[in-house]
Design a protein around this nucleic acid. Sequence first.
DNA 1: ATCACGACTGGGAGCGCTCCCACCGTACTG
DNA 2: CAGTACGGTGGGAGCGCTCCCAGTCGTGAT
Lengths: 355, 355
Amino acid sequence: MASGGRRGGGRPTLEEVAARAGVGRGTVSRVINGSPRVSERTRSLVQQAVADLGYVPNRAARALAGNRADTVALVVPETETRLFAEPYFSGILRGVSAGLADHDMQLLLTLIRTSKERRRFADYLAAHRVDGVLLVSVHGDDPLPDLLGRMAIPTVLNGRRTAGELVPYVDSDNTGGAQSALEHLIGRGRRQVATIAGPLDMYVAHCRLDGYRQAVRAAGHPEDDALVAHGDFTEEGGRRALRELLTRRPALDAVFCASDVMAAGARQELRTAGRRIPDDVALVGFDDSAIARHMDPPLTSVRQPIEEMGRAMAGLLMAQITGEAEGGGPDARSATGQAGPHLVLPTELVRRQSS
Amino acid sequence: MASGGRRGGGRPTLEEVAARAGVGRGTVSRVINGSPRVSERTRSLVQQAVADLGYVPNRAARALAGNRADTVALVVPETETRLFAEPYFSGILRGVSAGLADHDMQLLLTLIRTSKERRRFADYLAAHRVDGVLLVSVHGDDPLPDLLGRMAIPTVLNGRRTAGELVPYVDSDNTGGAQSALEHLIGRGRRQVATIAGPLDMYVAHCRLDGYRQAVRAAGHPEDDALVAHGDFTEEGGRRALRELLTRRPALDAVFCASDVMAAGARQELRTAGRRIPDDVALVGFDDSAIARHMDPPLTSVRQPIEEMGRAMAGLLMAQITGEAEGGGPDARSATGQAGPHLVLPTELVRRQSS
DNA sequence: ATCACGACTGGGAGCGCTCCCACCGTACTG
DNA sequence: CAGTACGGTGGGAGCGCTCCCAGTCGTGAT
């Protein structure tokens, strides 16, 4: 009576498909998994049976027998509220999802709230619940990437922690993006271009500041540290930084902000100070978020190819999982403790009325 | 030596824990799953062994043997770009994740890209062995919820499709939110309050328009259909709708928009028309998104308790899965045509300078 | 002391799949 | 014409767990 599964009422099993096709279990498995060691005739026989029965392999059984999971985890530290307010996260998600779909991989989403959860997460992984991990928004001091490395779990970071990142990663060209913003500003005749940089313990902030400096130097402008202020990627930080800048260099005629949110803060402060945008001061942000489009005036900003980054992350991870050497990485190899494969995607300046 | 599992080298199994604790496999299982039919002494013995060995149950094995998955899927139609541009989605995600964490459930994220994928989705679910499904942003004509119902897969919707929604859902009080916005506007002396409603094939748009109408009526204002325009929740739609309104009722002194994005479009058009906000025309949006905070002037908007909605969805789903609602709950069966359990959470008006 | 009856406990029987080895026939080879 | 490769195939042996049925043991009633 109560034989058979209770829920999902009797989906066909491998064995049933085999019986129907008049072959053995092993053969069906081979067909399902695309093994070449099956004759064409048998293959189509099996495929017919699969179609007839509407057979779909049972993931749990597969995972158990195959010692794998067909699942990758996307790990997000929830403390990163910044992340959540932006389309950034959604874009990554989208790209990852698209990149994974081609491989019939599931996407497990893990928000890490507390350090307790972080510890528990290692156990999760240990229990073989995922074949690989994608890490979003890792800080320089995050032990997770290295932990994963030690456990030999394929990992890909979104953005590197330091210049010499060893774990495979996908990043956007932050330095280049900042440079293009500066070239744009300088090209339009701005002489005193200030910048509101992010906190330097974040590598991404470092890069953007670097791009700023390089462009200033390349243009032959004097390098003036008084034109550099730091924010914490928040609006309030942007406001504070702009007040500093205005105090130190009242004659500045352009500000490059390391994020749109800080630019929004800067804009408010500029208006308060009676400066017109872009007439008196040109403003450029970074991220090309919704804020940029809706700001008044609309904000020129550096766009990252977010969705592509997600897709690239999925690709890099799959390459690791399937063990391919993968010709995707331009220079680096994951061979011998050297830098793993990585991708740095180009950014693009989106010009709007603020500059 | 190299015997045992190939990857993640030999995590302890139930059997090993049993051996160490000097008990049987079944007993360990009982302890792990919190069965009461274990003596206190044995329990602590087992717990000690679990701790010593760092045992973590293998999900795949559990899923296979127990015919369940300890996993729920969050399904998002990717066509809803609107969803992705907003913190809405992230908020839901956050709430769901939090609500699920208490139950040790995994969150599987599924973006549905094409209608082909949508059709295959049933198989997908069956094969992937999901214990329940959370559906975000379902349209009125979406067959998925009913399909899931027929397959007896626990489901919770985010927002209902129609007034008489049969599938369990969590929604916010859209009608009430619109009402509070209108009361606010009318309370501040606005006489000709227009609205930019959403497309009426979306129930949420219906509700917000309803709230508008009810409040207008309650205030004793004349019901003027010329004060109602429709947008499609996009910025351009908002612009177009506002132009219509301005043509029909040049003397309007307030606009309630069914979304912040449409409000952003309306704002641009108002400015183009030389109307000052809020002096000439007060503007109120819905969603309290990032745009609202950064708009110029900052936009008064109706906030939904997004994260709580996510949490509530998780809770409702878990109740279904564990069977708490499956006979004892309020009209649990959706198959019988009764309304399933649901929750409608209150909204809150966030006042800013635009009104 | 005997019996019945719970409270606990051990372990067999799978869940549906992959892995892998033995095996089959056939087409070559020497 | 035996010998030797193979491409191709069937099915046994688990993967680590849950379910469930027999025990085993104490206890109270008779």
